[in-house]
Amino acid sequence: MHRTRVLYATDGSSGAEQALELLIGGFEPSGVETVEVISVVARVARGLGSRPEEAGAPETIIDAAHSEAAQRIVRDASQRLQEAGFQTVETVRAGHPAETIVTHASVRRPDLVLLGTRGLSGLSRQLVGSVSGKVARYAPASVLVARTPGPIRRVVLGYDASPDADLALDGVGSLPLRQGISVTVCTAYEVVAPLRSGIAPTMFAQVDAARREDLRLARKAADAIAADATRRLVERGVDATPRVSHGSPHEQLAILASELAADLLVVGSRGLSGIQRFFLGSTSATLVAHPPTSVLVARRNPDA
């Protein structure tokens, strides 16, 4: 049986603490091969020289106090994980947090990168543009951005039948969780209302009839997609139910996750319907910019 390799990024902040609690409280140690605990120390500028010939770009150095703090943070997190039954590896690196985590993940090839949403390194609540957002976008592995400490019981899976949505479905079924989960498969469809400007009033009825037919066909297709994903999860022993919604996919996923008080929202990194904009790009609404729960962006490990 495959055991999950986890790369846990921490800076000792409250967000990183939530991610650690989610790992300890939600994941079964026997299903995890190793947890590599990594902390990134930002380089600081030493300053410009006082003589003209020394002028130029400032030299960057690693602050000793920051390095010692990072080592302590990693050591403390590793000890807590070991006490919970996990095997750990400790790592401290220097550089820009997001770039360093992504580069390290490219070398180490974990199955899952875990980190929080806010931290001492300037993580913002908004996933886009933050360290967590950049890692979720570029890491060569699935990325779990923790917003709650766990455990994980209720999961919302965004599914649109795309290849990446299939990865998300597989990821839900293979997570090494401590307890069983209930999954709500959310398939959203959207049919844009036609513009009436420039249309003769005598054509309104025909246009409306055509849109109603489009809605009917879209709903039928969405029902079939959600039912198929639900069936596949049930066949794997997962408690799953379908939910089909009309509206923008990213908004419907966020609304459903909030409505169900979901512990985890799972999607593929790309999709046929643009679901990825919710997790990796859209800032058009508060609900979209601030998802109410932890988010798992599923991505295939190149070595898998």
Rank of each mutant, 00 (worst) to 15 (best):
L22D: 02
L22C: 09
G25S: 13
G26C: 05
F27I: 05
E28N: 15
P29I: 00
S30Q: 14
V32W: 06
T34I: 14
V35S: 06
V35M: 08
E36H: 08
E36L: 14
I38Q: 09
I38W: 03
I38V: 15
S39G: 09
V40Y: 05
V40K: 09
V41C: 11
V41D: 08
V41W: 08
A42D: 11
R43V: 07
V44F: 03
V44Q: 14
R46D: 05
R46V: 15
R46I: 14
G47L: 02
L48M: 14
G49N: 04
R51V: 12
R51I: 00
P52Q: 06
P52R: 08
E53A: 09
E54K: 02
A55Q: 14
A55D: 04
G56W: 10
G56R: 10
A57F: 05
A57H: 02
P58Q: 06
P58S: 07
P58C: 01
T60R: 13
I61Y: 13
I61V: 15
D63I: 02
A64M: 08
A65T: 13
A65H: 09
H66G: 08
H66D: 15
H66S: 14
E68L: 13
A69K: 10
A70V: 07
Q71W: 02
Q71N: 13
R72W: 03
R72E: 15
R72T: 13
I73R: 12
I73G: 01
V74H: 04
R75T: 11
D76K: 03
A77Q: 02
S78P: 06
S78A: 15
Q79Y: 00
R80G: 00
L81H: 01
Q82M: 09
E83F: 00
E83P: 00
A84E: 01
F86G: 03
Q87E: 12
Q87T: 14
T88W: 02
T88V: 15
T88L: 01
V89E: 12
V89I: 12
T91W: 02
V92Q: 06
R93K: 13
G95D: 04
G95E: 03
G95I: 06
H96A: 12
A98G: 05
E99D: 15
T100H: 11
I101Y: 07
V102R: 06
S106A: 14
S106F: 03
V107F: 11
R109T: 08
R109I: 00
P110S: 02
P110K: 07
D111S: 11
D111T: 05
D111M: 13
V113A: 10
G116N: 04
G116R: 10
G116K: 09
T117D: 04
T117C: 12
R118A: 05
L120V: 03
L120H: 15
S121C: 01
S121R: 13
G122Y: 04
G122S: 06
L123N: 09
S124I: 08
R125G: 15
Q126E: 04
V128T: 12
G129C: 10
G129K: 03
G129I: 03
V131N: 14
S132W: 07
G133I: 07
G133D: 10
K134I: 11
V135A: 09
V135D: 11
V135Y: 06
A136D: 05
A136C: 07
A136R: 02
R137W: 07
R137V: 06
A139Y: 04
A141F: 02
S142N: 00
V143L: 01
L144H: 03
L144P: 00
L144N: 01
L144S: 00
V145K: 01
V145Y: 08
A146P: 01
R147Y: 02
T148P: 00
T148G: 05
T148Y: 00
